[in-house]
Simulated scan of single mutants.
Amino acid sequence: MSKRAADALAAAEVIVGYDTYLGLIADFLPGKKIIGTGMTQEIDRCQAAVEEAMAGRRVAVVSSGDPGIYGMAGLVLELVFKYPPALQPVVDIVPGISAIGAAAALLGAPVMHDFAVISLSDLLTPWETIVKRVEMAAAGDFVIALYNPKSTRRISHIEQVREIVLRHRPATTPVGIVHHASRKDESVVLSDLENFTREHIDMFSLVIIGNSRTYTAAGRMITPRGYSL
């Protein structure tokens, strides 16, 4: 968490978020009005946050990582702009530390060249669209970062992604898996394209698949930028 994010939470009168994420910031909650909801209730909690702000309260809507990367920033803005300009509260989007940034730092330097970030969650995006994006990213030799790579319901999607990427790059391509990046139960695993799905992967994991030039050295994953050494 950045200092600016911590300051925003400290200054808020109301904190709104997914229950799991609220549990990660328990130290900031005492003395605040808390609005928490479960998974798939994003619209309800963001609407409640907008209404609290329209009533004149300082509200913090919490996302894990960065609110503008698979977070709540977009939904909050969409809801705010449904109201006449005179009623719209001021929205200040505080950048955070994204999972891709945190995971990359733990792995070494895997995203030093062009990369694609793709979520494997098909709750809001059709799986056929996700497959197409993976195919294009693999064909374009992008480093590929996978958010929401595997859940208890989606156990085969990550295997399909592996098969797609194997058509475009060697089985020995380095793959990094970071679980709970920058949190208490953080873990880092280096594997390869052939074997990485045998590792523990869940919704708290981020998977980074290297491009054709990515290599490992001394336990670090490195994608060359192209400098002549």
Rank of each mutant, 00 (worst) to 15 (best):
L120P: 08
T214F: 13
D44V: 12
A105S: 15
T172E: 14
E51N: 12
W127F: 08
I43T: 14
G65Q: 04
V61S: 01
A137Q: 05
L75T: 03
G36W: 06
G65S: 11
T152I: 06
G56S: 11
M136D: 09
A48P: 01
Y147H: 11
E42L: 06
W127G: 06
V188M: 08
E52F: 09
T172Y: 00
A73K: 01
L120C: 07
C46H: 13
P174C: 03
Q88K: 07
A48N: 03
A99R: 13
E42K: 12
T40G: 01
P67F: 10
M72G: 04
G68L: 04
G101V: 13
S2V: 03
P30K: 15
P84V: 11
D66K: 12
L106H: 04
G31A: 13
D192W: 06
L206C: 10
L29R: 02
L120N: 06
S191H: 02
E78K: 14
C46L: 14
G71N: 05
V14G: 14
F142H: 15
A116N: 11
Q160A: 07
E163W: 01
T223C: 11
F115P: 02
S64E: 08
R153S: 10
L9S: 13
V178L: 09
S187P: 04
A109C: 10
I158P: 05
S98L: 12
D192A: 03
V161Q: 00
D27L: 10
A60P: 07
T20E: 15
K3H: 13
L190P: 05
D185P: 03
I35N: 09
D7T: 12
I201L: 06
M136H: 13
P89V: 02
S63W: 02
R133E: 14
A171E: 15
C46V: 07
E159T: 05
E163Q: 15
L79K: 02
A171S: 15
T129G: 00
G56K: 07
T37Y: 11
A104N: 11
A53F: 02
N148L: 09
T223D: 09
G65D: 04
I130V: 14
G31N: 10
E51C: 04
V50R: 00
H157E: 12
V76D: 01
F204A: 05
R153P: 00
F81S: 10
S156I: 09
H168Q: 12
I130P: 01
A171M: 12
G219A: 07
T37L: 12
R213C: 08
H200C: 01
R169W: 10
L193S: 06
E52L: 04
